[in-house]
Amino acid sequence: MGLFDIFRQNRKKNTATLAKERLQILIAHEHASGNGLNAPDYLPQLRNEIMEVIRKYVAVDDKSVNVNLEKGDDFDVLELNITLPDRQ
């Protein structure tokens, strides 16, 4: 094998290795964020109860409360977004 062949071999090796590394990072990330699939099943219930509490104080509709769970490496973040009605 000549010198140039060795260079080519190395360059080529990189794309398969690169593919593996990219996949590992991506898949780890997708798993961590639950793939949008593994959201805990108490979320809908939680959302409903939160809605009830808020409605005691402000008139909000269904769409204005958004509950989202993000999984991190060490801890999960429960994000609650409430859009209050316009002030007239």
Partner: peptide, 13 residues
Amino acid sequence: SGDMISLDDIVEI
């Protein structure tokens, strides 16, 4: 030749 992911890597992933 290094331009296709190997089966070991796929199994690992």
